[in-house]
């Protein structure tokens, strides 16, 4: 109570940044800060910056989880949103199906604020329940960073039909696991897990993403596609960093 509000706000900000950067799947710092006393609660809840990074609490009861997300989004006012939906936070003994269903409702709620989404990180077992929401992301004008990781059955790659073109050109950083996507043209960083990539796919990748500077490929699956007899080397002018 003796500390000036400016100092307390600074502590909240540093704590929130630290939580976000080091352990986002643990108890959120803004929640800790707002649990201390009435004064701190008022102060924390009136600072939208603390709430602009949201981790869907899938370990809570369904209703509580969805209420949290709505409340959280409301507290962030009109700031750009960064969101994580990761089923590592699943409730013990809740079935995989029930977790996926809740995650799908959470993503629906989050994508209602599509115009404010800056970063979205989804990591789930199954893709099918969130497919429609992901396709809706093509309308998210401010989305910069997107991570879509689906464990799914091993060696199965889910293809989103190219016609759906689910990603807006604002996306510059993309990570995908078990998902074949049309890469957005302004991409600078791409991380792929288990992609099936041959000569032709690589050609499409670099001609479609002329600014791609960082590429990380986990478990590359080479494709035995026919290589043109007179193949020319694919020039990846923009690429600065490559890890396979």
């Amino acid at each position: 109570a003796d500390l000036p509000n400016e100092i307390i706000s600074q502590i909240f900000l540093v704590g929130t940044t630290d939580w976000r950067n080091t352990a986002p799947l643990t108890l959120p710092f803004p929640v800790i800060a707002s649990s201390i006393c009435y004064h701190w609660r008022q102060l924390a809840r009136s600072n939208p910056v603390l709430w602009s990074f949201l981790v869907a609490p899938l370990h809570k009861e369904d209703e509580d989880c969805l209420y949290w997300i709505s409340d959280w989004i409301g507290l962030s006012a009109n700031l750009p949103l960064s969101v994580v939906v990761d089923d590592k936070l699943r409730r013990p003994r809740r079935s995989s199906e029930a977790t996926n269903r809740l995650a799908s409702e959470a993503v629906t709620l989050i994508t209602q604020s599509w115009n404010r989404l800056r970063s979205l990180d989804i990591s789930l077992d199954s893709f099918s329940l969130v497919k429609n929401q992901i396709i809706q992301l093509r309308h998210a004008p401010n989305l910069r960073q997107l991570s879509l990781c689906f464990r799914g059955p091993p060696f199965a790659t889910i293809f989103i039909p190219e016609v759906d073109r689910p990603l807006p050109p604002s996306v510059t950083k993309l990570r995908a696991q078990n998902l074949a996507l049309q890469s957005p043209c302004n991409l600078t960083s791409l991380t792929m897990h288990k992609p099936r990539l041959g000569y032709e796919g690589t050609q499409i990748l670099f001609s479609g993403c002329p600014n791609l500077a960082n590429l990380i490929i986990h478990n590359l699956v080479p494709v035995n596609s026919p290589i043109p007899a007179k193949r020319t080397e694919i020039r990846a002018e923009s690429l600065q960093s490559l890890a396979i």
């Binding site: 990539l197 000569y199 690589t202 490929i217 590359l220 080479p222 290589i227 193949r231 080397e233 694919i234 020039r235 990846a236 002018e237 923009s238 690429l239 600065q240 960093s241 490559l242 890890a243 396979i244």
Partner: peptide
């Protein structure tokens, strides 16, 4: 090696295989 065999990367400053 297969992947790198058909790529030309003139501005590469970091490579990890």
């Amino acid at each position: 090696v297969y992947f790198l065999s058909f790529l030309k990367i003139p501005n590469l400053s970091y490579l990890e295989v």
